[in-house]
Amino acid sequence: MLKSITLLTTLLLLISCSQVSNQNPLHTASAALPEHRQSDFQSYLSDTRTWLEQQRVFVSADKQAELNANMPYELPPADGQPPQKAVLLVHGLGDSPFFFRDIGAELSKQGFLVRTLLLPGHGSRPADLMLADSDEWQEAVSHHTRLLQQQVGEVWLGGFSTGANLVTSEALSNDDISGLLLFSPAIVPESAMTHLLPVVNLLSDWLDQESSDGNYTRYGSLTTNGATQYYYTTRQVRQQLVENTYDKPVLIALSADDSVVDSEAVKSLFEQRFNNPASKLFWFGETTETTDSRIEVLTSRLPQLQISNFSHMSLLFAANNPFYGRNGSHRICENGQTEAAEKLCPDSNDLWYSNWGYQEADKVHARLTWNPYFDRLVSSIKQVTSAK
């Protein structure tokens, strides 16, 4: 979804380009966004499902699967015991709670009460991100954090991409949070031009306006306002990190080749501003210069699996995920390659996998959508969250 933000050098061209007709219901906003401040989580779930049933523009024949993928959810501890610890997981821009299916299940096995959010503007139709506001996203995270803290004493926050920005901001202002789990945290954008987004938002509604490719777990189009609100989350959390260090445990998983995030800058923030000795950063890439023993480098070039490098989204999913896994039902062929390569991708029997925008002669690359080191990541999550 954030691929458009990595192409901000073409923003002025996008303003003048013709756009897909707004007659497409995907590109027509709902009248209003749903309420997210219910007094209990079950009411939030019930109200959100009702709203999605009424407002979602379905993109596949399986409406129930679409609803389930976009619904927030709760998982009790897998051992059936009353929860002693809990975690709130927050998805990224244009994404859905589905992105935590694998991580959430593993956290449940580790004894967590797991909850996910659906950020306002998500789950229904891409045009609803015209109505989104980063302050409302932050308030939703704060509200549901408080609901968890009323129920469980030890509360962790986890987030992917934009969601990682939001939960980090919450933790920096809420001393009662026990720690953070951050997956591809989009704290520092790869593009140096994201500061232009608020201006472009005054001139153009869309950064990327597409018809659906059948992927019901995330939006295929991106409004300029949605990207602008993402930018505001980066500005907020970076300012907080200038003024504060974070001394609770944190696990960060980061691709060195992330097309959305300035990975080196985020690594530097980890070294300088996240100072708990039990913290851990997984660097999925080749070697990197560091003297910080808390950083573990795991090679991202795995020819035996036909993986060239890791993508922004790949860190979250297990290889056996039925939708995004190695043999999953959905393949992302729109991957910043040549048009010829993208045409070959759907039926290729010799497919490689990479981040968005990676190209290599004589190879066709789809997006890498699973993590070969998933079990190792899960094991480290347990170590970090057990640290006192």
Rank of each mutant, 00 (worst) to 15 (best):
L7G: 04
L8M: 15
S16Q: 06
S16R: 05
S16H: 04
C17D: 09
Q19F: 02
V20C: 10
Q23Y: 06
N24T: 12
A32M: 08
Q38V: 00
S39M: 01
S43R: 04
S46I: 03
Q55H: 08
R56L: 02
R56S: 09
V59R: 02
V59E: 02
A61N: 01
E66H: 04
E66A: 12
N68W: 01
N68V: 07
N70K: 05
P76D: 09
Q84L: 09
K85A: 07
L88Y: 10
G92W: 11
G92H: 06
D95S: 15
D95L: 08
F100Q: 10
I103N: 12
Q110I: 08
F112L: 08
V114G: 04
L119S: 13
G123Y: 14
R125G: 12
D128I: 03
L129A: 11
D135L: 15
D135R: 14
H143L: 08
Q151A: 11
G153Q: 15
A164N: 10
L166Q: 12
S169M: 09
A171S: 08
A171E: 00
L172R: 01
N174R: 15
L180Y: 07
L180C: 10
L181E: 14
L182Y: 08
F183K: 01
L203I: 13
L203H: 05
S204D: 14
D205Q: 14
W206L: 12
L207R: 09
E210H: 15
S212D: 06
G214P: 12
G214S: 07
G220P: 00
S221N: 07
T228W: 03
Y230M: 11
Y232H: 12
N244M: 04
T245G: 01
D247W: 00
L251Q: 15
L251W: 04
L254Q: 14
V260Q: 03
V261W: 05
L269Y: 06
F270G: 11
A278C: 13
F282Y: 13
E289V: 11
D292G: 06
D292V: 04
S293I: 11
L298M: 06
T299H: 09
L302K: 03
L302C: 02
I307R: 01
N309V: 00
S311K: 02
S311M: 02
L315H: 02
F317P: 08
A319Y: 00
N321Q: 03
N321T: 11
N321D: 15
P322D: 04
F323P: 00
G328A: 06
I332Y: 07
I332L: 13
E334A: 10
A340L: 13
E342H: 02
P346S: 07
G357Y: 01
H365V: 09
W370T: 05
W370F: 14
W370Y: 15
W370H: 10
Y373D: 14
K382D: 15
T385G: 01
K388C: 10
